[in-house]
């Protein structure tokens, strides 16, 4: 039981690190990686929290969720990479321009 908060905290930490990277880095590839790190953090939290009751088999539902989540994440990442390449092709840089207001 004591390991649960630890792994959950690690998951939360990954989420935060990913968020930080997503905001700080300009390059799209880094941003996509950051999103993936965040996703892994969320899955870790889900997996850890499946161990809800002491001395009992872990709850299978979160595992099902993780599998769904991974499928979504793979598809998304593939699409994001293609989009990145397209952006690079059109603009010459795989980066987002600065925020324009107006």
């Amino acid at each position: 039981m004591s390991s649960v908060p630890l792994f959950a905290l690690v998951g939360a930490g990954l989420f935060c690190i990913g968020l930080y990277a997503l905001i700080v880095y300009a390059h799209l590839l880094r941003k996509i990686l950051a999103i993936n790190v965040m996703g892994s953090g969320v899955f870790l939290v889900l997996a850890t929290l499946a161990d809800r009751t002491v001395n009992a088999a872990p709850d299978p539902v979160p595992h099902a969720m993780i599998i769904t989540g991974i499928v979504v994440a793979v598809a998304t990442t593939a699409f994001a990479l293609v989009l990145m390449l397209k952006v690079a092709e059109k603009t010459g840089r795989a980066e987002l321009p600065d925020e324009r207001t107006g």
Binding site: L19, L22, I35, M38, A80, L83, V87, K90, L96
Partner: peptide
């Protein structure tokens, strides 16, 4: 459109 889409994608995933 492509840069807007890329930004939209990241926000959406986040």
């Amino acid at each position: 459109a492509l840069t807007a889409a890329a930004r939209y994608l990241l926000v959406s995933l986040l």
